[in-house]
Simulated assay, not measured.
Amino acid sequence: MAPATGSVGVDSLSDVGSRLRRLRKQQGMSARALADALGISPSAVSQIERGVLNPSVSRLIAITDALGVPLAAVFDARDDVVAEVAATASGFALQRAEHASNVVLDSGVTFRRLSPGRTPGVDYFESTYPPGSTAHADDDLFRHDGYEVGTMISGELTIDFDEERVILRPGDAISFPCSRPHRIHNTGGEPAVAQWLIVHAER
């Protein structure tokens, strides 16, 4: 008999917001302190945590950087963490397709974690950018922690650096320090899918 298969789930805004609130509290940081670190109002932090406001890719990364947690932590529901601990005790981590989930951000950008469990110092995920979508709501460039390696799977992504523009097509790969100002967006006419590895310094 063939094994049962399931579909990839999509996390709601309230799921993402509640996880960010839980992570903030675990780090002992107040909403006001997080707002100050991000340069936004405490009200905006509250709206994100309540699922009223959908963060952009750059905002989500800025939040996890400010909290000192990996991006992968945003994908973890409480049950996921328990399952991961059990798997680790067995010497490996396993994520079935039906337990995978997507995080949908501002402008419809979707993140899907590819690593089956937490991998210290590394975020490994797949992004899907709909046509016209961007990682950063503003026109200016942004930077964050880590070193980024990306491989284009399908579609076309444009990365703007301070003095250069790079267009990625299927099979292309790129690496750069995340401290270099950049902006990722889809200027093509079809969804753009890429896989990313972000390596962080030990936290």
Score class of each variant (00 low, 15 high):
93 A>W: 02
94 L>R: 15
40 I>S: 10
64 T>F: 06
86 A>V: 05
71 L>Q: 03
36 D>L: 11
89 A>S: 11
86 A>W: 10
43 S>W: 09
33 A>T: 11
80 D>C: 06
45 V>P: 14
57 V>P: 04
50 R>G: 09
57 V>C: 08
70 P>F: 01
50 R>Q: 10
52 V>Q: 13
41 S>L: 03
45 V>M: 12
60 L>W: 01
90 S>C: 11
41 S>N: 04
34 L>H: 01
93 A>I: 08
66 A>P: 14
72 A>I: 01
44 A>P: 06
68 G>M: 00
46 S>M: 12
44 A>Q: 15
59 R>S: 12
66 A>V: 10
81 V>E: 04
34 L>N: 07
87 A>I: 03
73 A>F: 11
61 I>L: 13
53 L>Q: 12
70 P>M: 00
57 V>M: 04
65 D>Y: 05
34 L>S: 07
46 S>K: 15
59 R>Y: 04
44 A>V: 11
89 A>Q: 12
90 S>P: 07
33 A>Q: 09
76 D>P: 09
82 V>F: 13
38 L>E: 00
86 A>F: 11
88 T>F: 10
46 S>R: 13
58 S>K: 06
87 A>T: 04
70 P>N: 03
39 G>P: 06
38 L>Q: 01
55 P>N: 00
69 V>W: 01
48 I>V: 15
65 D>L: 02
35 A>G: 12
80 D>S: 09
85 V>S: 07
50 R>I: 01
92 F>Y: 11
53 L>I: 06
93 A>K: 13
39 G>W: 02
71 L>R: 04
45 V>I: 15
67 L>G: 06
87 A>F: 06
77 A>I: 03
82 V>I: 07
71 L>P: 08
50 R>C: 05
38 L>A: 00
64 T>A: 08
75 F>G: 07
58 S>Q: 08
81 V>R: 14
34 L>K: 00
79 D>G: 10
82 V>D: 09
54 N>L: 05
84 E>K: 13
50 R>A: 10
36 D>N: 13
34 L>I: 02
69 V>M: 05
58 S>V: 02
34 L>Q: 03
55 P>Q: 00
69 V>Y: 03
71 L>W: 06
46 S>P: 10
68 G>N: 00
37 A>S: 15
51 G>I: 05
63 I>G: 11
49 E>L: 12
66 A>Q: 08
80 D>P: 12
88 T>N: 09
53 L>V: 06
56 S>E: 01
84 E>R: 11
51 G>R: 05
36 D>C: 05
83 A>T: 04
85 V>N: 08
